[in-house]
């Protein structure tokens, strides 16, 4: 069942950056971008690599291992070596808190 979970405060994440967040044994990435806050799976779809140390550039997350890039808003795989999209999750911001709809 999907549910909105209070994940972090908005100022826990620097601008143009992300944090790793764990909930019920699953790892998520939560992003603060110029277009707002977004959430996705934490692991890259190319190999088993966390995106936590990745670079956020213009609403794109770049994987730290091989530089594969995903659109943060849609999860779309943008450039090699990634070809499989990243799963994204709805996000809502209320009173300085970031809520993620998991499920």
């Amino acid at each position: 069942m999907s549910q909105w979970i209070d994940a972090c405060a908005t100022d826990d994440i620097d601008e143009e950056d992300l944090i790793a967040w764990e909930h019920e044994g699953k790892s998520y990435a939560i992003y603060n971008t110029e277009k707002g806050f977004f959430a996705s799976d934490l692991m890259c779809t190319h190999e088993e690599q966390s995106l936590e140390d990745g670079l956020v550039i213009d609403c794109v997350i770049e994987c730290p291992l091989h530089g594969g890039r995903f659109d943060i808003c849609t999860g779309k795989a943008l450039s090699a070596p990634v070809h499989q999209d990243l799963k994204t999750y709805p996000v809502r911001v209320e009173s300085g808190r970031v809520f993620v709809e998991t499920g």
Binding site: H46, E47, L65, H66, A80, P81
Partner: peptide, 13 residues
């Protein structure tokens, strides 16, 4: 070029 890229990603892994 793509052989270069993909064998090199493997070299880094």
């Amino acid at each position: 070029p793509l052989h270069r890229r993909y064998t090199h990603t493997n070299h880094h892994t």
